[in-house]
Structure formats: structure tokens, C-alpha cells
Design a protein around this nucleic acid. Structure first.
Ligand SMILES: [Zn+2]
Ligand SMILES: [Zn+2]
Ligand SMILES: [Zn+2]
Ligand SMILES: [Zn+2]
Ligand SMILES: [Zn+2]
Length: 485
DNA sequence: CTGTCAGACGCCCTCTGCTGGCCAGCG
DNA sequence: ACGCTGGCCAGCAGAGGGCGTCTGACAG
């Protein structure tokens, strides 16, 4: 028990001293999520920096800035509990932060503040020290008093007990070993322990042992209450909280409670933030607040579907759900099927079939990327000159589809070597990767009511006359409409 | 015996991504 | 009206960083 007490207390002190906010972990983005409430302004670290797009707010001052979005300003509107995010901020100095009030709390700490309840005694003792940094009126306390820095706030620490001071960041340690370990973590980045299976390396041997379990799947820490087993002890401890139903983290604005700190941070960002960056889908114009949800979106709507999706209203076939849904909309309302030979129109292929006004013809086309078209006034395939304007139109038609980049890359590689600027997300030279082309084209083709329109709109008249036979040809099905008569 | 040191252990933290329930919008 | 769908959301676990403390070996 003495151990536990000492540990908890030491931890609080250390983290107060460590003061990672300003120095920001050095090798990675600032990760500390402490919010410091000071004159209504909070510094909000640790926003996702991988986000793709920043939504423009209603106010035009949310202009693009060179500043990396590793931290944003968050202004609390006390009246409505909103937090406004801005891009330009000035960072509070650590001492300023120390004077601030923390916006985060844990339920346990709130209880320990009142110094009663049946909290684990040692825990209370550990946490009680943190109380002096908080006023009862404040809603929140940051776990472990993370932002508290000055030594005045660490009364048990005597000067001189940490004689080993880091020359690069002023952090002090009790032993030389701690200092050298700290230097490896923060400054030299020396990682003597290398994994033989992957590229991972670590500062400490124990970290390597822990890492190796991710390869072996070994789970030495079984839960006594369920079938779960963990790879390390702290994961099991975290898991056990799920059996108690305890929600240690509380949102200071709406008092919603959460099981994990990260959940609360996401909540605060998404629920109480304004101008919060969103993720834009690279394939469509959808903006999604969470990166993981964008992943779901990509899997559900933009992934290749092995089993072809057949449109009920026409011959179009799709391997991507999103394209299919877009296509379906074209059947809505308007009479998209028009006989090229008479005035008959209808909205569904089936009706056209009933009227014996539809048949489909297969044509083949080539695909080029914009760079290729740009660099080749007269692209050739199999020695045959192509109508560049027609091909250009062809490409422009398809340029929005990511998969076109794949094909484009393929065609460029054949003639010019790799193209460095186009990202690849599915394997090049994969026949599967080529299939969605049909879906793409089908979606586009629905904008034209007949082949004449298609030809005039995209200047395709020459396309179907070309003698094909190269690898990057694509079969398309163009609807022809005519009356049997 | 005592101090020092390296290695080991354990804790706490963050970031990340998946999952399934919820719910509003839409056909 | 109703079922479906897809974004929103909290729960949760995997992986890893950083550091306080313990422990055993060893030198003085
Ligand atoms: Zn340092
Ligand atoms: Zn490895
Ligand atoms: Zn369990
Ligand atoms: Zn809230
Ligand atoms: Zn999309």
C-alpha cells in the first residue's frame, strides 16, 4: 500500500513537472489534451492532424493558413457552452497554463474532492493532493494535475532530490539512469532494442517484450469475469473498468460521462466545437467528422464489390455502391430513356424494353491520364494515332473517378515510367481494378438520352471505330435506343 | 554495510481504429 | 407509414511512449 501511495504521488508530481504541453513530445504532434481555461480562451492541443480538409466556416476569416493544424484556438462561449475553434492561436506559456483552470475532470476526482465516498483509500490519498489546485466551483480537474508545474505546487518534493538535470530540456531526475533513459526517449532517440520481425525498435527491453506479443498473439493476462485476455497488465486493468460500468471522465460542458479519456476528447471536439475540421471523402463530396467513420464510408460506398450490382431500371452494372446510388438517382423523375428514332420516352429501361426500343452495344475505349494527354498531342495506341480531342474528352469524362488514376498510371507507366504524383489505392495491373470503369461510365452515360447525344456531348464518334487490342482497353456498354420500326 | 547502477516491472497516458446502437432523412 | 441507410456517437481494445519505482549485482 505504501508503494501504491508513493507511486501515485510521485506520478502526479512528475507529470506536473514533466509539463509536456509546451515541448510537445518532441518527435510527434502535441498530444496532451489538457484544456486551460483562462479568460475564456482554451488551448486545445491534439487535434487530429491527419484530417484532409478544413471546412470553411460561415465567417470567411477561417481562411487557409500555413500553420499546421496541430493546435487550434478554442473559445468557450459560457452562455451556450459552445467552443469555437480558430486556426491562429498563441500558445500559453507553461506557467500561464499552470495558473489556469482545467477543463477536464474525472468522476473519481470529483468525488475525492469532496473527500468522502467509498473510494479506494489509497487512491483518495493519491488524488487528494491534486485538490489544492482546484476550487470547488471549478467543474473540472485534470487527471494527475498534469498541467501543474511550479514546484510550489509540489510541496513534498525537496530541492536536490533530483540532481540529474537534462541539459536539453531542464527536466530533472533522481538517478543518472533515469536521465539517460529520458535522453534516449526525448533527445537522442536511440533505441537499442530491435524487433527481428518488423521494423519496431524501442528504448527499453520491456517495451520490446510487450511489442513481440503483438506478433505472437500471446495474452498472458486473462480477465476473471469474461473471456477476454490482454497482452499486458494495464490493458486488463482498463478492461476491468468495463465490468464496473464506471465512467471516470466527465465533459465539463454537458456533464456527459465517458469510460475513456479519448472518448471524452472526441466528444468535446465534435459536440462542443465550432469550425471543427472534417474529413472529406476523396471519392465524393461527403464530409465526415471522424476519420474512422470515413473509413466506414469508404468501405461501404467506395470499395470494390465483387458481385456486380445490376440497376433494376437499365442495363448498367456497378461494382461500387456509391456509383450505383448516383446512377439510381438518374432514373428518378425524368424520362431518361428516349427513342432515338421516334418521340417515345420513358423513365425505366423495362418500359423501353416493353416498347422494344432498347438495345445495348458494346464499345471499347482507351484511357489516359491528364499528364499523358498533356504531354502527347497525338497519343497513339498500337501505332495508331488517336483523335486526341476525343480521347481527351473521354478522359475528362472519367477524371473524377479514383480508379481512373489507376488506369492512367498504368497507361503512363507503359510509355514513360512511373508517375509520382498520382496516388494508388488499388493494385495496378489488376483486372479487378479496371472493372469499376464500367460503373463510372454508366453513371455518366445516363446524362444523355441517346447515342447521338453521347457522341455530340463527348465527341466520341471516333472512339468506337478504333481498332483495339491493347491492355488498357475497357469495355463499355452504351445504350442505343431505337424503335424496331 | 552502503551507495550506485542497469534492468525489470508496472503504471498511466495518448493515439488510433473498429464496432454496434441510434436516429434522421429519404425513397 | 415504414423500412432502409449512412453519418453520428460512445464504448472499447490494440499499440506504443514516458517515467516512477523496485531489485539484484557489484564496487568501495
Ligand atoms: Zn531532456
Ligand atoms: Zn515487431
Ligand atoms: Zn472481462
Ligand atoms: Zn459535452
Ligand atoms: Zn465518398
Amino acid at each position: 500500500m505504501g508503494l501504491g501511495q508513493g507511486k501515485g504521488m510521485g506520478k502526479g508530481q512528475e507529470q506536473g513537472q514533466g509539463q509536456r504541453q509546451g515541448q510537445a513530445v518532441g518527435h510527434s504532434e502535441p498530444q496532451v489534451m489538457a484544456l486551460t481555461l483562462r479568460e475564456g480562451i482554451c488551448v486545445f492541443y491534439d487535434l487530429e492532424v491527419t484530417q484532409i480538409h478544413v471546412l470553411q466556416g460561415r465567417s470567411s476569416e477561417s481562411k487557409a493558413t500555413e500553420k499546421p493544424p496541430d493546435m487550434l484556438l478554442m473559445e468557450i462561449d459560457r452562455d451556450n457552452g459552445a467552443i469555437a475553434f480558430e486556426n491562429n492561436i498563441q500558445q500559453l506559456s507553461p506557467s500561464e497554463e499552470g495558473e489556469g483552470k482545467k477543463l477536464f475532470s474525472t468522476v473519481g476526482e470529483t468525488k475525492s474532492q469532496s473527500c468522502k465516498d467509498n473510494e479506494n483509500l489509497s487512491e483518495m490519498c493519491n488524488e487528494s493532493k491534486e485538490l489544492e489546485y482546484t476550487t470547488a466551483s471549478e467543474q473540472t480537474v485534470l487527471k494527475n494535475a498534469k498541467t501543474v508545474k511550479s514546484e510550489a505546487c509540489v510541496p513534498h518534493e525537496k530541492k536536490g532530490t533530483k540532481p540529474y538535470k537534462c541539459s536539453e530540456c531542464d527536466t530533472a531526475f533522481v538517478t543518472k539512469g533515469e536521465l539517460s533513459r529520458h535522453r534516449r526517449y526525448k533527445h537522442t532517440l536511440e533505441k537499442p532494442f530491435k524487433c527481428t520481425i518488423c521494423e519496431y525498435s524501442s528504448v527499453e527491453a520491456s517495451k520490446m517484450r510487450r511489442h513481440v506479443r503483438s506478433h505472437t498473439g500471446e495474452r498472458p493476462y486473462p480477465c476473471a469475469l469474461c473471456s477476454y485476455a490482454s497482452k499486458d497488465a494495464s490493458k486488463l486493468k482498463r478492461h476491468m473498468i468495463t465490468h464496473t460500468g464506471q465512467k471516470r471522465y466527465e465533459c465539463c460542458i454537458c456533464q456527459a460521462r465517458f469510460t475513456q479519456c479519448g472518448s471524452m476528447k472526441i466528444h468535446m471536439l465534435q459536440k462542443h466545437g465550432e469550425n471543427v475540421p472534417k474529413h472529406q471523402c476523396p471519392h465524393c463530396n461527403t464530409f465526415i467528422s471522424r476519420k474512422s467513420d470515413l473509413g466506414v464510408h469508404l468501405r461501404n460506398l467506395h470499395s470494390y464489390v465483387e458481385e456486380a450490382i445490376q440497376c433494376r431500371d437499365c442495363e448498367a452494372v456497378f461494382h461500387e455502391r456509391y456509383t450505383f446510388l448516383q446512377h439510381k438517382k438518374t432514373h428518378k423523375g425524368g424520362k431518361r430513356f428516349k427513342c432515338a428514332q421516334c418521340s417515345y420516352t420513358c423513365s425505366q429501361r423495362s418500359k423501353m424494353l416493353e416498347a422494344k426500343c432498347l438495345f445495348l452495344k458494346e464499345v471499347k475505349v482507351f484511357v489516359f491520364c491528364p499528364n499523358y494527354i498533356k504531354d502527347h498531342d497525338s497519343p497513339t495506341i498500337a501505332g495508331k494515332s488517336l483523335d486526341s480531342s476525343a480521347e481527351r474528352g473521354m478522359f475528362m469524362l472519367k477524371n473524377t473517378m479514383e480508379v481512373m488514376k489507376i488506369l492512367s498510371q498504368q497507361s503512363v507507366e507503359q510509355e514513360e515510367g512511373p508517375l509520382e504524383t498520382l496516388p494508388l489505392e488499388v493494385p495496378v495491373n489488376s483486372s479487378e481494378a479496371m472493372r469499376p470503369i464500367c460503373s463510372c461510365f454508366s453513371a455518366i452515360s445516363t446524362t444523355c438520352s441517346n447515342i447521338q447525344n453521347v457522341q455530340s456531348a463527348f465527341n466520341w464518334s471516333s472512339v468506337k471505330e478504333i481498332d483495339f487490342g491493347e491492355t488498357n482497353e475497357v469495355s463499355l456498354y452504351i445504350p442505343y435506343f431505337f424503335c424496331p420500326e
